[in-house]
Design a protein around this nucleic acid. Sequence first.
RNA 1: GCCGAGGUAGCUCAGCUGGUUAGAGCGCAUGAUUCAUAAUCAUGAGGUCGGCGGUUCAAGCCCGCCUCUCGGUACCA
Length: 677
Amino acid sequence: MTNFKRTLVTTALPYANGPVHIGHLAGVYVPADIYVRYLRLKGEDVLLIGGSDEHGVPITLKARNEGVTPQDIVDKYHGIIKKSFEDFGISFDIYSRTSNETHFETASGFFKTLYDKGEFIEKESEQYYDEEAGQFLADRYITGTCPHCHKEGAYGDQCESCGTSLNATDLIQPKSTISGSIPVRKATKHWYLPLDKHESFLRQWILEDHKEWKSNVYGQCKSWIDLGLQPRAVSRDLNWGVPVPVEGAEGKVLYVWFDAPIGYISATRELTPDWEKYWKDPETRLLHFIGKDNIVFHCIVFPSMLKAEGSYNLPDNVPANEFLNLEGDKISTSRNWAVWLHEYLTEFKDKQDVLRYVLTANAPETKDNDFTWKDFQARNNNELVAILGNFVNRSLVLTQKYYEGVVPTPGPFDTFDTETLNSIGTFVDKTEEALKNFKFREAIKEAMNLARLGNKYLADTEPWKLIKTDAERVKTIMYISLQITANLAILMEPFLPFSAQKLRTMLNMGQVDWQQCGQKEVLKPGHTIHEASLLFQKIEDAEIQEQLDKLQQSKKDNQAAAKTATPAKENITFDEFTKMDIRTGTILEAEKVAKTKKLLQLKIDTGMDQRTVVSGIAEFFQPEDLIGRQVSIMVNLAPRKIKGIESQGMILMAEDADGKLVFVSPASPVKNGSEIK
RNA sequence: GCCGAGGUAGCUCAGCUGGUUAGAGCGCAUGAUUCAUAAUCAUGAGGUCGGCGGUUCAAGCCCGCCUCUCGGUACCA
């Protein structure tokens, strides 16, 4: 590995349309903060960069819904997010935002450079345009009927009902959410970053030169590259974002995915005039801490941008984490299934370190993990309180009791003393080794082992007994206990900064650095320490129950929301209704369409003929169970080829709240071909 | 379907390029102990390493097939 002189750590920019939750913290910010605090303690030159991602369509939509400006939205959430990070001790050198001036300048300059170098391709395409509002419509600004599940109110990019991702042009009866008018298709010009052009470079750089990346990251990249990379639009028609800085681009802004990672650069520029040293000097190590949803951007897209620009470093590693679930379910902002950081701190005041600890000890490093309140309580009570807090307390209380807070002068060390003192260094080394490899779960475990060592040492030497018979020996024992305690005060700093600081205050330690860590004498004999207070408090069952009840309430609210039917569609005339020819029919044959997940190929006796229908119901029915079943079929729907099979009609299904499909059939058997009207 | 990541003790996870009786923490049981927030310390019970087959003197680790979970992708008239 190259010997780097300094490190630049970036953390994924949280999207400023909502607060941050434990998933963000566990996946990105806590590990990044631990890593950076560790390097700082070692005296290394390191920067931790963060900021809010404030552009993009969802923010404009939210603003519209709430009747405020997009700036109002991002101001609000940027404030909340920034404060949450401060409160949890995420030690950013700068936490910036993409709506500020430096960023506009940086992003726009970056685009201009690539533009001038001819790194983009220009393409014209047809997009929906709202004539009343006089603007192009982003996919999210269009609603209509989902072509798949036929639910109304699907967005142009995704149907929230069936979860399918869509193209706006596929929506049935599209409608602009801005003016309510029916949008028209209109040609528009955009710039694209030809990722395919960078494929051979990416192959070499990732698949050959960075085999050491985490397996989830490496595999994901390989998957994307092998699937074939496509040119990606870097601009779009929108009025919220960084304007495209070329002529003829009025009403166009940089696509949010393009401007967001440039936010890392902008923030660094804002922080220091020396920013280029951190971004362009090959002796700087660039690290991106992100969640797994961001792997493709940070390993493929952003590096391609940097490479195309030419003067920037590429990331040396991208330690992406998987996702954190909450009590067995995916964390979801819209379903309010989350533990919000700003709420946590009002309910568990001053317990930042507890959450940091639990999220680190149970971090989703290799696979998705589950956060449960019961585990949270257990780790607090059985580990932080019982092992770490208790050892520190024992050590300090005994010192006060026997020596009024003065570190005693030790006598000769016996074998066990020496072994114990040596072990301190061993645990420190193991912690450090894990940290270097981004194995934070293992690192915090090894750090805790130092506290275990302390407890064992006290249990084995029993100073409270010896004090009556061999007071001299007790001095040595307490001296060693205090050295372990002092080491903990340093070793825990990256993980539990608040508690470590509190401990250092108790120990009257002052400034520390990593070099002291692992040493046998951190506190000199004669040094006076302060009164002890508890580092951690037990968490009672009632507090945990309160949190569980709160989540239960979210679940109830969601179920209630799911029960309300979607509003009726616009009226149609009787003539329009009679155009639809719906009949009863019987399924004669059914088989799964090869190489698909959802498709069944059905042969239906419609009374008039036997015809083939392809239907997306395979997830809910076994083909053999369908034979002989009577169904409703729309017979005059224009035929369409699906997976090479011509589908002549459509089976009518009802969709339940959970997305399950149910046949709409005659209540008792009728002649095939009977009209449904 | 295809691609990727996972499936190891009740729970959360380690297991390097295949090599003696498969590990840790928590939980559980028993014992010791009382300086300490009834905390601690020791000992122990728990595993056909998702399933089946193969390669090998030897497989949790390699190969094939199957199965389950998560993510990406195709498909949903």
